[in-house]
Amino acid sequence: MKKFKGLNCILLVDDDEVTNYLNKVLIKKSGIDVHIEVALNGEIALEYLTSTGKYSSNNGFPKPGLIFLDINMPRMNGWEFIEEYNKLDSSQKADIVIAMLTSSNNDDDVNTALEKYELPAYIYKPLTLGKLEEIISKFYPVEI
């Protein structure tokens, strides 16, 4: 198993349970030693990051180093999540890399993610080993 400095957890934020299952299998297949957490919408993801809601009794969940975020979700979509995420205390955000992982190839979505919100990555679904390895090597190059 490969372990990377600063990458103890990957948070998958997507309302599609099949996609989440496949992404979890892919991450495990990659050989990366990491906790994988799933949030079915932005609200749940924020609860995870802030230890509130269903995560309020937990102090032991690892802070994600990487978030794969979908755009279109019920209750709180990816854009709404980013707006709320940006309001968090810096200790809750730490050094989290947010990669938009979506099926949207709309130029407005790409520009919003990369220019307005300055996200470091915009990835088209499906997640592949190659795309995962590219993100890991770009943001977590030091294997420990």
Rank of each mutant, 00 (worst) to 15 (best):
M1Q: 13
K2Q: 15
K3R: 12
F4M: 14
G6D: 15
L7N: 09
N8G: 14
C9Q: 14
I10Y: 06
L11V: 09
L11S: 10
L11R: 11
V13F: 09
D16F: 11
V18I: 15
N23M: 06
N23C: 08
L26F: 00
K29C: 03
D33E: 12
H35I: 04
H35E: 15
I36V: 13
I36D: 10
E37I: 05
V38L: 04
A39K: 09
A39M: 07
L40P: 00
N41W: 03
N41C: 02
E43D: 09
I44W: 02
A45L: 04
E47R: 04
E47Y: 06
L49E: 08
L49Q: 03
L49W: 03
T50Q: 07
T50N: 03
T50W: 03
S51D: 09
S51V: 00
G53C: 03
K54I: 01
Y55L: 00
Y55W: 09
S57L: 05
S57I: 03
P64V: 04
L66D: 12
I71V: 05
I71C: 01
P74H: 04
P74K: 05
R75V: 13
R75L: 10
M76F: 02
G78F: 02
E80H: 06
I82S: 01
E83Q: 08
E84G: 03
K87L: 09
L88M: 07
S90D: 12
Q92W: 05
A94S: 13
D95K: 12
I98S: 04
M100H: 06
L101W: 06
L101R: 06
T102C: 08
T102H: 04
T102N: 08
S103E: 12
N105M: 13
D108W: 07
D108P: 02
N111H: 11
T112G: 03
T112W: 04
L114C: 05
L114R: 05
L114D: 00
L114S: 01
E115T: 04
K116E: 08
K116V: 10
K116P: 01
Y117A: 00
Y122T: 09
I123Y: 05
L129Y: 11
G130M: 11
G130T: 15
L132F: 15
L132M: 11
E134A: 15
I135P: 08
I135V: 15
I136T: 13
S137T: 15
Y140H: 12
P141Y: 08
P141R: 10
V142W: 11
E143D: 15
